[in-house]
């Protein structure tokens, strides 16, 4: 009697905890195609971000995290990339100068992977300023 209740309880628990899988079962969820089609990027001779694409894709958040510490706390404003090129460390003025299509670039992937970075509560999105 007691064992049966335990098993029923466990079954309900397993069903509840796997709801996201049932909910998404059979549906296709394609990885977003990130758009690099902005005037600033088109004008570049070599279409390369400040570091390798692979690094940027997986580590841009750590890079930005380091940047904010360097800029605010250390007074360093210039990032010297691995290839020796120098960049002003600014999310809203350097990153978004090229990636001016925040919705198709940043948001598309963040929405897909379900992360909500709170950069934009303070840093200004390009379309907010006209």
């Amino acid at each position: 009697m007691k064992n049966r209740n335990v098993i029923i309880g466990l079954a309900i628990f397993v069903v509840l905890i796997t709801i996201p899988f049932w909910y998404g079962a059979g549906k296709e969820s394609k990885a977003p195609e990130l758009s690099l089609d902005t005037p600033a990027i088109q004008a570049l001779d070599e279409k390369k971000c400040i570091e390798d694409t692979e690094f940027m894709r997986s580590n841009h958040m750590e890079l930005l995290n380091d940047w904010k510490v360097q800029v605010v706390r250390e007074g360093n404003r210039i990032y010297v990339a691995e290839d020796g090129k120098e960049y002003l460390m600014s999310l809203q003025n350097t990153c978004l100068e090229c990636h001016s299509n925040k919705e198709e670039f940043c948001d598309a992937c963040h929405d897909y992977s379900g992360v909500e970075p709170n950069c934009w509560t303070c840093h200004v999105e390009p379309e907010e300023v006209k």
Partner: peptide, 14 residues
Amino acid sequence: RNVLAGTPGSYKPD
């Protein structure tokens, strides 16, 4: 693990 990976570039003031 990822957080400790580090950044390839370096920093300097303007």
